[in-house]
Nucleic acid binder design. Structure first.
Lengths: 212, 212
DNA sequence: AACATCATGGTACGTTCGTATCACAAACTG
DNA sequence: CAGTTTGTGATACGAACGTACCATGATGTT
């Protein structure tokens, strides 16, 4: 049986098993044995590809962040081949809302990791500062470009608006997660705020009606 | 030694020990023995006053929510004997930001519980829907009163603004918690957004200095 | 004074968890 | 073909955890 095997691929499979089972039962309740069972391999194998649980968790977080990034990028791409600034920002923010099962899991686990990172130096490093900062920069840059072609209300501070939007999106995401708010109502709140920032004008391709 | 003892008081002491130790080491890492040690009692005692760990956690959450409520109320009261709507909203939102150690612990643990509540029906019930809804109602009501005396920019939807503000505050809180943003910068973002909603006018006692 | 009840301590039990160990077959290397 | 490396299984081990059990002194009641 033991043929040569691609470690990276194997690790990814196991990490995805981790994400699945953690999404179902909560990150705190996941053990090595659960991950092994979910991945359909033996406990020993999980140990073999990640020597320790902490390394598994760490890799799981990186994997999760990467997948989240992919997802956002896909949404932005899906907004059209040359999307306007508003459509782009909208896609980015909406992708971050836990609307479907997959993004719900993302949000749930990302928050779980965030909580762990408060007490675990190793988890804190990258994803909770670098990634949000990247998102902030991206939104800021998009807003700046919108400003240059006069698509924004005058007198706005692009970075400040970017931070506000992302904070709002994150906060709304959490309230969806705990069941306080529906995804639709959260999306409406975001739309409303975008309406306030972007100038209303005739024929743009962004504020259509009901998204999926 | 065994004299008659006030159970409620005892339970509160233990719950506060739970909050302290959980704030230090993370909720996931707290066991009965840790709580007992922190409270300076025996393991048996913790078992005696809360038969099961789940009940301890549940009570801890209730206690935390109540203390958080007290804290917000105190901040609002501290805003003056008859604070204007803006000062009131400001106090409420700022109190929710993890600026000092105590509110940092609040935010940390509240988020921990929120994550647990996704998979634990018993934890979900009250605090993550009822309390936020109450806050939302309070802010909405305050904004409505501000509208009546023409303190807001015209044409705003009070409830929508309240939701936006609270979501932003929550999102900023999390980013402070994970170390992405400073409390000062988060406060500035909130102030900026309040400036946009409330009409600028001469002598209010709220929007003092410069952001960043 | 006798007795029930309350508060508390100590400790044992069964489980689960992360990790380590032993064993072995397949695949590559020379 | 011999030998080393690599992938995989089964299982054992020690620690920690939540809970249960047993004991006992203090308090209140009759």
């Amino acid at each position: 049986m033991p043929k040569r095997v691609d470690h990276a691929e194997r690790r990814t499979e196991i990490a995805e098993a981790l994400v699945r089972v953690a999404g179902r039962r909560g990150l705190h309740a996941v053990g090595m044995r659960d991950v092994a069972a979910e991945a359909g391999v033996s406990l020993r194998l999980v140990q073999y590809y990640f020597e320790t649980k902490e390394k598994l968790l760490l890799f799981g977080l990186e994997h999760l962040a990467a997948r989240l990034g992919d997802r956002v990028a896909a949404r932005v791409r899906a907004a059209g081949d040359n999307p306007g600034p508003r459509a782009m920002v909208e896609a980015l923010l909406m992708a971050a809302l836990p609307a479907d099962d997959e993004s719900r899991t993302f949000h749930h686990l990302y928050t779980s990791y965030a909580v762990l990172s408060v007490n675990d130096r190793a988890l804190a490093a990258q994803p909770f500062i670098k990634n949000p900062n990247a998102a902030e920069d991206a939104v800021t840059e998009t807003l700046r470009r919108a400003q240059e072609v006069d698509l924004l209300e005058p007198g706005l501070d692009a970075r400040l608006e970017a931070v506000s939007l992302l904070a709002m999106s994150a906060g709304l995401g959490t309230s969806i997660l705990v069941g306080q708010r529906s995804p639709e109502s959260a999306a409406a709140v975001l739309q409303h705020h975008l309406d306030r920032i972007f100038r209303a004008h005739g024929g743009a391709a962004s504020t259509q009606k009901a998204p999926e």
